[in-house]
Write a protein that binds this DNA or RNA. Structure first.
Lengths: 215, 215
DNA sequence: CGCATTGGAGAGTGTCACTATCTAAACATG
DNA sequence: CATGTTTAGATAGTGACACTCTCCAATGCG
């Protein structure tokens, strides 16, 4: 298929596809002549993944390129490819290391991991970007005067453990390693809005249950 | 306190505070003279909330203004103020209504709400922005070929129910209605990065448990 | 033959969260 | 009272980002 058909079947405009090609989010097609290339189903699939990551997952273009590169990195195994891809995802602003609240938050987060027994590699985890994201969020809550200690966090973390089991069960349904890694990234990113919207809906439901009938 | 002190105690630069004043994210101070105003502790508190919403919660400035207005809207009660504030939060791109996948996603989401028994007001819920966010995310997963039916979603939704109970328990610890509404918004927004980072950490842990030792 | 499409590249657009610069008034210090 | 700093208020500029536009020459297609 050529550019116009790729555009039509994906719903992405041709200038945008050209932009993605330029940014190397999409591999170049097979060159037919000096002015034409042939694209296959794998281009369509990749394009849809790129779109979903950028539009639904809100991932910056340069970051998406790194995530996709990690998915395809043949020098890494299964588990490490997924780790590299997740590490490349956006994680919000870095924690302010000069702030004492950050140091306290880091202690709280470390204590939480110990309580959970997530210690497959505590040094690696504590240097990871999701851990930094957690530290920054705890510090922000602390700044606002909302207590956020391990007692508050533990139930959330237990829920997260359950979610991870669901996620990995889904991933293991895919037969090939490539399919599993791609699925892991796609499901990590695309289930985030699912989870957040369900939480907001559940909060509305619970709020109505508790406060709803009083006016 | 005056501008310089507000800046120092909040860690926000004076030009940025002026910008927030201009954008009405922060109420004006009490005018002392033609060129000076006095700010109180409530300004400091509000400023920290604004910062947390924008920097940690990644909420656009104009959206933050609407959220804050909803918190303070005296014409609404407790529950509806929270609803209005959550409704004002960003929810990602709208679902493409011309896409048949969107219609299918909407059916799936509606069926899910029925299964859950979240039917305090199904028409209202189905028109809400979190519901639209859920529909868009399901449609995106469908586009990528990842099955996302009620069987897959139900465990996530059950987890979300649990989370909402924790959240509302936390909210009810605050004594005043104003404090509760502000806490509900702050906790809704600021626990999102907590939840997402914990999920990513839990996935890394679970991935290691399943695939980690094979190389 | 003539019109549309393509690959490629550079420049332009719109949004967003600041950030810089200015002015006149007023405070702070010696 | 002189001098330097701070302030409110307003306008304009910045840098990042995700496109989007425009152009060109070569090619495909009817």
């Amino acid at each position: 298929m050529r550019l116009a058909e790729l555009s039509e079947r994906s719903g992405v405009s041709t200038p945008t596809i050209k932009y993605y090609l330029r940014e190397r989010l999409l591999p170049p097609g097979r060159r037919i002549t000096a002015t034409q290339s042939e694209y296959g189903e794998e281009h369509l699939r990749r394009l849809r993944l790129v779109r979903a990551l950028i539009q639904v997952g809100r991932i910056p273009v340069t970051t998406a390129r790194e995530v996709l590169a990690a998915i395809e990195d043949d020098s890494l195994n299964h588990h490490h490819r997924l780790g590299a891809a997740v590490e490349a995802l956006p994680h919000g602003p870095e924690a302010d290391e000069t702030d004492p609240a950050t140091a306290a938050a880091r202690r709280t987060a470390t204590e939480l991991l110990e309580l959970l027994g997530w210690r497959f590699n505590l040094e690696v985890t504590a240097a990871s970007r999701p851990f930094g994201m957690l530290v920054a969020a705890i510090a922000a809550l602390d700044h606002l005067g909302y207590a956020c200690d391990t007692a508050h966090l533990l139930p959330y973390a237990r829920q997260a453990e359950q979610l991870a089991v669901f996620d990995l069960d889904l991933v293991e349904e895919f037969p090939t390693p490539e399919g599993q890694v791609e699925a892991a990234v796609a499901l990590t990113v695309l289930y985030e809005p699912v989870l957040l919207s369900l939480r907001r809906l559940a909060e509305a439901e619970e709020s109505n249950r508790r406060f709803g009938t009083d006016g």
